[in-house]
Design a protein around this nucleic acid. Sequence first.
DNA 1: TATCAAAATACAATCGATTGTATTTTTACT
DNA 2: AGTAAAAATACAATCGATTGTATTTTGATA
Lengths: 339, 339
Amino acid sequence: MSNKPTIHDIAKALNIDSSTVSRALNNSPRVTLKTKTKILEKAQELGYKRNVLASNLRKNVTNTLGVIVPRISRYFFSSAIQGIEETAYLAGYNVIICQSLEQLEREQSIVNGLVEKRVDGMLISISMETLNYQHLDIVKNNGIPLVFFDRHCNVEGNSNVLIDDFKGGFDATEHLIFQGNKDIVHFSGPNELEIYKNRLAGYKAALKKHNLPFKKDNIIVTRLMEEDGFKSMQSILNKNDKVDAVFSANDMAAIGAIKCIKECQLKIPEDIAIVGFSNEPISTVIEPALSTIDQSGMQIGKTAAKLILSYIENKQIPETGETIVLKANLIERNSSKRN
Amino acid sequence: MSNKPTIHDIAKALNIDSSTVSRALNNSPRVTLKTKTKILEKAQELGYKRNVLASNLRKNVTNTLGVIVPRISRYFFSSAIQGIEETAYLAGYNVIICQSLEQLEREQSIVNGLVEKRVDGMLISISMETLNYQHLDIVKNNGIPLVFFDRHCNVEGNSNVLIDDFKGGFDATEHLIFQGNKDIVHFSGPNELEIYKNRLAGYKAALKKHNLPFKKDNIIVTRLMEEDGFKSMQSILNKNDKVDAVFSANDMAAIGAIKCIKECQLKIPEDIAIVGFSNEPISTVIEPALSTIDQSGMQIGKTAAKLILSYIENKQIPETGETIVLKANLIERNSSKRN
DNA sequence: TATCAAAATACAATCGATTGTATTTTTACT
DNA sequence: AGTAAAAATACAATCGATTGTATTTTGATA
């Protein structure tokens, strides 16, 4: 089929055995230096390239990580992927990227595909539709290390790399309270997802600490797209004139809200103050600049990659998972700072 | 090593040959329906999963595309990757993503790695340092189809998916001229890159058409990061008070320029009008909203993926490459529209 | 020089699926 | 029933590298 030289060609040319060639190319101490150089020269001469497929089959590894995210083009995820790729590259691993597009069914089929492809490890940030986790059992059953990042599930024994969503939610809300706001709406995401649960819990805790009443009506659950934020804001402005602040569980919805408020000729933060979550680049550009919780996708990605690489290299997944929680810091900008 | 069932286990259990099992699982017409169902049932019973590594070795394919971009987290690239992934997924392919981080050396090593890994096809948007292309020869030499997208190189026989950079540059510049601007600066990127050459050429052509003089000093070449745009704008404001508009070869630099202009208390577009390039989401959020050339990463990605998949499926790379040029349309926003 | 341990290399099985060819079984027709 | 053609299945090599074991070679020592 192809004319690519193999170790057998090298062996034949030098009248030695292919096992010796293989060992020489892998720099095994079992081959004498003289033979090694002879073999390396011949390999060079023939333009030999190792067939990774054959090697992988024999060794049952792929030097590949599988990564599943809801959507690659979301800044948070693309920067997480960037961190994963950089870390994996340094360790000699490649990264297969897949996107669930927030669909459970697709996530399931991707998981199966990656297991079939024998990735050495898997990193996942689950979709908004992922409310049960059976489709992930297959990963563990096949002995493939699995690390969740950001969007995880609350299951004992999993390994996760997260940011401190509770503290983020708490700080964001408390900051709004410090600025004198009393009636704070929270834009939340699907509340089956841990991250949104925890941000909401932080919000509640801050209200409680400062003796502000928790109103069920002040929680608006959507998918937190920009349009969702816009519409949510519209409905607030239509029915309740007491709301003086919004804590949005992500930046995109916050930006939708800002656009809505500006269209209504209201002032930010004087009429409505806003805090977002994620510190996407866009948050420094909108006017007023959006206060938000800094969540470095890059750092999460790097941490998650390091964690899974450690499992792979040690050939052992800890029985009880590890969870690494990264700091989430409030960045105060003009969308919430009253003078 | 592992206890995973193979076709041999199925064969043994049914007292037939493994070749028949293989054919049955691949739905070959050479196996009778009765045997097929028997085999499928047994496979199900044993929890058989095909070993893709073995299959790949034998068939010498990987069902994997390699993608190289300068940086994953740039919106244009992440949306191109999104398009590539979606298209590849539908065709049953996975996508390995690598980033050159604008470094030639790293790009070289990535290319070698992907060739070694035997990807079935490769998509690349070259780095800013990529001024010669020898490291790409190995791709063709190994019979791997290669498609450039966006950042390509001007080499006969390559296949490319591009947008119409010349027209984009021309339209952006002419639009500024129509708005009454007479002294238009152009922020350009490394002029070895075709895309920047072409955008510049479009700029020049528009000036010429409208009998405006081309001034060498009005071309500022940087890497077009946001800081570059900021600094370039600073130096313009410091030395030349006649400049009335900027056409930036990307949005990030344009945004840097806008920030600089606003800091200097000048008005956009009254004092300086600005047009960017790419239509990144951020361009709708900045104030004033940035006029720009719409360049859908998603569409470029999808088109490029379709093109390379066609080469792979047809097992033939056209001798003389194909180049697909997608439309680039001007979007007029407030950063350039004078009333 | 003979002997033995150590070093270097060869042998051969293996990873698991695929596929061209050979053989057996079935089917159809005289 | 006998035979040829067609269908189904079995055999065996192959993809290319890896690795445990066996064999040969080297070299040191008596």
